[in-house]
Simulated assay, not measured.
Amino acid sequence: MNNNMSAQEARVKWSLVAIGIAGLSATPAVAQEGDGGVVREARPSKSVEDVLREEHTLFDNRFSIEPSINYSYSDRSKLALRGFLALDAIFLGELNLDGVETHITTFDLNMRYGFSNRLELGVTIPFVYRSTTYQSIGDDLSTERESEVNVDEAALGDISATLSYRLLPETPTRPDVVISAGVRAPTGKDPYGIGLREDDNTNLIVPTELPTGNGVWAATTSVSLLKTLDPAIVFGSLGYTYNFEESFDDISASSGDQPGDVDLGDSIQVGFGTAFALNERLSLALSYSHEHIRKSEITSNGSTSKVIDSDANVGVFNIGGTYALNDSTSIVTNLGIGLTDDASDISLTFRMPFQL
């Protein structure tokens, strides 16, 4: 009987050990510290954290510095007719093909600090270098000669700050919801009152300098959603930008000061996409963003008028990826392809977030 009891006790002990081992292997999201006491859940992989940082907001109670460089290129051609139509069939005058090539390189210094797992502050300081080439057929009134002038500018851009708050954390049935509010200061070179010049022996008139900012204060608000659908992450956002009306001593490109008020058109932004954490360090994201900008208005000498061709629709398809070098540093790339006439033809961004 003692032998039977010993055998039964041994079977019970081995069963308990097996159950304990199975229980430990079935809970990989739980981490232990000290003498084996459970204290917290394990952090997500670094690739998932990078997706959260780039497409949403990562509230991790850490200070991060994110230098970045963005290059965008656009090429616009416009047929210019200077004359009149005779007998409804014959055009008398000048026929010019004008082209504008724009290169914009922006160096950004982004700083973020998470006060808690719900509140984060971000500040962006941009430095802008612009180079624009103006081309026109008709140099010296000849249809066989082309004139070309290049104008460039390098200066500080508009500094912005954004405060983000996690309204609802993600659950198995609900996405993570974050609301944000921000402000943009007119620290860059404004585009108003810039003079024009004409090169010798050409029919091409170009600005004397280029702007690096909008020249007005702006307030932004947005809401973003993110849901983890293993192995994918889906996200979307909706935002609105309000530009405050501003007075300037000169809003005309002609000689002499012409004071007036400028009311830039407000804009609404929408975006959506999906991302995949390919492994512990590498992720890939595909997204689309669209911005609709309303017409601007100017007030001068007591009369208000809308600025022709100041409204825009900017649609961009984005292909992005992140690679974690280590637990505190990542490399982020993004390629933007313009899908509308008002968007840049191509935009390329490199970022390197450092977490301290």
Rank of each mutant, 00 (worst) to 15 (best):
M1G: 14
N4L: 15
S6Y: 05
A7D: 13
V12Q: 15
K13N: 12
W14T: 12
S15C: 04
A18E: 14
A18C: 09
I21Y: 08
A22Y: 00
L24W: 07
S25N: 15
E33I: 08
G36L: 14
E49M: 12
E55A: 13
H56P: 08
T57F: 01
T57N: 07
L58P: 11
L58C: 13
D60V: 08
N61R: 13
I65F: 14
E66Y: 02
Y73I: 10
S74I: 06
K78Q: 15
A80F: 02
A80H: 02
A89H: 06
A89I: 01
D98P: 01
T105F: 01
T106E: 11
D108V: 00
N110M: 10
R112L: 11
L119T: 10
G122Q: 07
I125C: 04
R130G: 01
T133A: 07
L141Q: 06
S147H: 03
E148S: 15
N150W: 05
A155H: 10
L156D: 07
L156N: 09
D158F: 01
T162R: 10
T162P: 00
L167Q: 08
E170L: 06
T173E: 07
D176L: 10
V178L: 11
T187V: 04
D190A: 12
G193P: 02
E198T: 14
D199L: 13
T202P: 00
T202I: 00
N203R: 05
L204T: 09
V206F: 01
T212L: 11
G213W: 00
G213R: 03
G213E: 00
N214K: 09
V216W: 00
A219N: 00
T220H: 06
L225W: 07
L225K: 04
K227F: 03
L229W: 13
I233L: 14
F235S: 04
G236V: 10
G236L: 09
S237M: 01
L238I: 09
E246L: 13
L264G: 04
G265W: 03
D266H: 10
V270N: 02
N279Q: 08
N279H: 09
S283F: 02
Y288E: 07
H292N: 03
R294Y: 05
E297D: 06
I298V: 15
S303D: 13
S305T: 12
K306N: 10
V307I: 12
V307C: 06
V316M: 13
F317C: 02
Y323A: 13
I331R: 03
G336A: 13
D345S: 14
S347T: 15
S347Q: 11
M352L: 14
Q355G: 14
Q355W: 04
